[in-house]
Design a binder for these strands. Structure first.
Lengths: 195, 195
DNA sequence: ACAGAAATAGCACGACCGTGCGATTCTGAG
DNA sequence: CTCAGAATCGCACGGTCGTGCTATTTCTGT
């Protein structure tokens, strides 16, 4: 790895951290330069525009998410177990996977009304994530853990909602019962989906 | 109503609209002045700081929300019917109650990591809203529509999650099945809560 | 109709924004 | 060790931000 790629990676790590706290719009080149101990122009040279910086930051967050949440799930046996691991990993991620809340939750709210490349990327991320949930639920159907007529899209929709509610209850409201609530709801959902 | 109060109301209406689109941080005094055809300083004089502007904008949105969602629900008969009206009203609100998405969803994500008076107000809003859902569910318990041992807090948690998921599916992803999915999940939940 | 108050505008400020350019320093292959 | 190319910096630009101060206009009660 060349020097440039090395610093760029370090920059993006910091960028992910900042964007998690203040959003992608609040992610500012000046502050990022300060945190990475670089000059604004030196940092800027790595990306030729702020938009590219934002896109690459999102991309970097996505890689981390894949490593920390998706991959561990895909290495556990197909079926309901895999569904549970996927969800548990997400809970870890949302709670303290990185400082600040889940950066995808933040970005989803931030760009739902602002067209452009960033919005497109955020949408793609979210679609892929929902598809992952649905696919994993599909393995549980295939394994006979879930009933054959389960609507996996509907399942993904509901699971996603519970995660969003957990994120809000935990990070915004500081509700100590958040984890208990989301587990209860997920257990109910899984029970209702069982074959 | 004096002239000052009149213009202030008009300003806040515009402010709610802008904040719905670009968030409270993106709500800028210059743009607000432009949209209301006022000078920056003339507008600024109504609030002595941007933070006050943000707080009053949130307050104004809350009033609208109460009028459009909460009050209609409270005027329908206690019980499961009231729960359904509350949810239906929220769906209307989130879809096209005001231009842009639900301003509370946006503000929740925006301030979940930034201490200060705005965050406090957002938290208060969200707590009150969850309490409203739980209380309304409580009337359904009292009327015998829902089973007596229903955990109304848990119910509110789940309903809130479904709403968040709907908001995201509809506004961000443009999923045409969003409404179908949220209705299905809510029906299931209500059925599972029935006495 | 008029005086006093309220509302609004004009203008300026320092700070930070994203972005370019030319100069300087660093890195690594031959 | 050299030296071309990569990486980084210093500096500046125009723009917008939030916020004050001082006028000026507009309202309102008498």
């Amino acid at each position: 790895m060349t020097k440039g790629e090395e610093t760029k990676a370090a920059i993006l790590d910091q960028a992910v951290a900042i964007a998690s706290e203040v959003g992608f719009t609040g992610l500012t080149i000046g502050q990022l330069a300060e945190r990475t101990q670089m000059s604004k122009s030196g940092l800027f040279a790595h990306f030729k525009s702020k938009e590219v910086l934002q896109l690459e930051t999102l991309q970097r967050a996505r890689e981390r998410f894949t490593d920390m949440v998706v991959r561990p799930a895909l290495t556990t046996p197909r079926g309901v177990k895999r569904v549970q691991v996927l969800v548990e990993r997400w809970l870890d991620w949302a709670t303290d996977g990185l400082q600040g809340g889940c950066i995808f939750v933040a970005s989803a709210a931030e760009y739902d009304d602002r067209p452009g490349p960033m919005r497109d990327a955020v949408v793609q991320n979210e679609r892929d994530w929902l598809e992952t949930i649905a696919t994993v639920a599909g393995t549980a159907v295939a394994e006979g853990d879930f009933r054959a007529d389960l609507d996996t899209e509907q399942f993904a929709f509901t699971v996603q909602g519970l995660m969003l509610s957990y994120h809000q209850a935990k990070r915004l409201l500081g509700d100590p019962k958040a984890l208990e609530h989301v587990r209860q709801a997920l257990d109910d959902l899984i029970a209702a989906s069982a074959a």
